[in-house]
Design a binder for these strands. Structure first.
Lengths: 253, 253
DNA sequence: GAGTGGTCTAGACCACCGT
DNA sequence: CGGTGGTCTAGACCACTCT
């Protein structure tokens, strides 16, 4: 039985721009990705070989290879030596990148609002200090917020940050996401280690999230690092499980 | 203030083997990783430049670059153009790769045992069929298991697989992990899309997991694909939240 | 044997950072 | 300015699969 052959419309790579600040591998990957997501290249179908694409686009094989590898790492493509490269079957899920809850909601077209519940500078206890790679007793900013989506409470967010962020204004924290504020100060989140679990909600959370006391909440503890590898933020969050969940896609190397 | 300089013991890369079936980039990466995890290269410290390592090891820069990039993707290193490459601060967490619960437990030195609760061949309903990319009505194997760790119940695992796996023996399902059985049949899991949430447990789950009725459970729905991109398994699992949680580390690209 | 992806090489130019 | 990582090239050899 013959595998589906790949014949792509010529326009697919029509607007590649060698002078663009975007790297060529990125341009090729994004065009391939949209062709896959739109079904132009069908699920289960084979794509052309690396050499064939390289020759067609007049781009070297390593560059094409990198574009394809990026999509393999995203879980859209699968490769087999001696066979070729195929599109993964089944609908492709848009995976959660490293984003904040605020950005997740905004991107879904949902208006997110925030209520600031706590905003104080404390001396770091041993646990928080160790997580943030600070000496115990150093000042840390502690904030606690409630996040609503379209008027419905979704999560209670509890965060600790190094003392130098103590000047984050309460007003600004109600108007934007934390990562957004940090980015505007030149601090980009690069790495996040997180642990996801569940427990019964506290009485406090029950009233904030408008749940029955003792009802389940989804919890996430997240430690984030910036582009220099420095610990920036420790978050302990509780989510209303009917209104939020975590999606990821894993790819074996 | 001077940044910590990197002077590595000469033995670090002593046993690199060009004739090994393991690629050079993999050998270099694993040695760098253990040097970081063991503290030989301290947290926050800078490593040598790509060119310096390449010259020292007599390996080309692209190969060294790939080794380093693998560790960046794992969240162990951070790179800045014009500056160099540094180790991320804070203790490095061993992140969850694409593994099954059974393997997770085994690797932690915990003895995992399984009780088979259900084992039947059904006609796929529309939902299951769509997820597995099968026509509705096709036969599918449905299994339900309870997983114990050191004699304590940890999770209830509910799975659907394409009908061709209907010959998986009940006995073998009690003695090994599902992925392990599939691998021994030549089916390797390559991609997993998963959604993690929480809810109150059912009465059935309460007795199986030895919990109070209505207590919170951590849930995961996972759809896995093999190396050819074909959907292999749909899992719906419920975990005792005091005995299991999910850890991941995300890296921005 | 022909074609595929997996690895590796030896260069090149660039953008960016520190001094 | 020299050094760093980011991108790109044009080859090469290999292991593997299908015919």
């Amino acid at each position: 039985m013959a595998l589906e052959e790949a014949h792509w419309p010529e326009e697919l790579f029509a607007d590649l721009d060698r002078t663009s600040p975007l790297p060529m591998y990125s341009q090729v990957a994004s065009r391939l990705e949209s062709a896959i997501r739109s079904g132009v290249i069908p699920a289960g179908g084979r794509i052309e070989s690396e050499m064939a694409i390289a020759e067609r686009l007049q781009i070297s094989r390593p560059t094409i290879r990198r574009a394809i590898q990026d999509l393999v790492d995203k879980g859209l493509l699968v490769r087999q030596r001696g066979i070729g490269t195929q599109v993964v079957q089944g609908q492709v899920e848009r995976s959660v990148e490293l984003t904040s809850l605020f950005e997740d909601l905004s991107q879904a077209g949902i208006s997110a609002t925030t209520t600031l519940l706590d905003h104080e500078v404390l001396e770091a206890d041993e646990d928080v200090a160790a997580r943030l790679s600070l000496p115990a007793g150093d000042p840390v900013l502690h904030i606690r917020r409630r996040r609503m989506a379209d008027g419905v409470p979704v999560a209670v967010l509890d965060n600790h940050l190094p003392g130098e962020f103590a000047d984050l204004l309460p007003a600004s924290l109600e108007g934007a996401g934390l990562y957004q504020l940090l980015r505007s100060r030149g601090v980009g989140i690069r790495i996040a280690q997180q642990r996801i679990g569940a427990r019964a909600c506290t009485p406090d959370e029950a009233s904030l999230l408008e749940m029955e006391p003792g009802a389940p909440v989804l919890t996430m503890e997240r430690l984030t690092y910036d582009h220099t590898g420095r610990a920036i933020e420790l978050g302990r969050h509780a989510y209303h499980p009917d209104r939020y969940s975590f999606s990821t896609t894993l790819v074996a190397r």
